[in-house]
């Protein structure tokens, strides 16, 4: 106490902090309560879930489906570069073969791309094989 009296500035700061805490605490409680409400509300409003893709026509994909889900973008981009620059054309693994099973781009590619918010621009120039 003696030291506080000898430093009036320190005492004022401490008092201000105490008051600030007393004032702010109820506000925080209210805010956290309403925050919880907001979370609850958005959870109940969201019904989407991951997109459900239509079943593909064929027996099996050219690679395991799990692998394709994770790696198709690198696979396609690598093949694209090989085809353009080295002339590599593997007809059994071309995009035409993709379209034989996944017939609609809107119901297949676009579903997940829209869900995760990516916008590959392949089909602004190329046409999806029919």
């Amino acid at each position: 106490m003696r030291s506080l009296q000898s430093h009036p500035l320190k005492f004022t700061v401490l008092l201000a902090l105490v008051w600030a805490f007393v004032l702010v605490l109820p506000t925080m409680v209210v805010a956290s309560g309403s925050g919880a409400d907001v979370t609850q509300h958005s959870k109940s409003a969201y019904t989407g879930g991951p997109p459900q893709l239509e079943n593909a026509k064929g027996e099996a994909c050219i690679r395991p489906s799990d692998w394709m889900r994770r790696n198709h973008m690198d696979f396609l981009k690598h093949r694209r570069a090989q085809t353009v620059r080295e002339g590599l054309r593997i007809r059994s693994e071309s995009l035409i073969k993709c379209a034989e099973c996944h017939q609609s781009r809107e119901k297949f590619c676009d579903q997940c791309h829209n869900y995760v918010g990516v916008a590959p621009d392949c089909f602004e120039c190329h046409s999806y094989p029919k």
């Binding site: 080295e86 002339g87 590599l88 054309r89 593997i90 007809r91 059994s92």
Partner: peptide
């Protein structure tokens, strides 16, 4: 028909 895999 062309073979399945061709390369330049």
């Amino acid at each position: 028909p062309p073979p399945d895999k061709t390369e330049a």
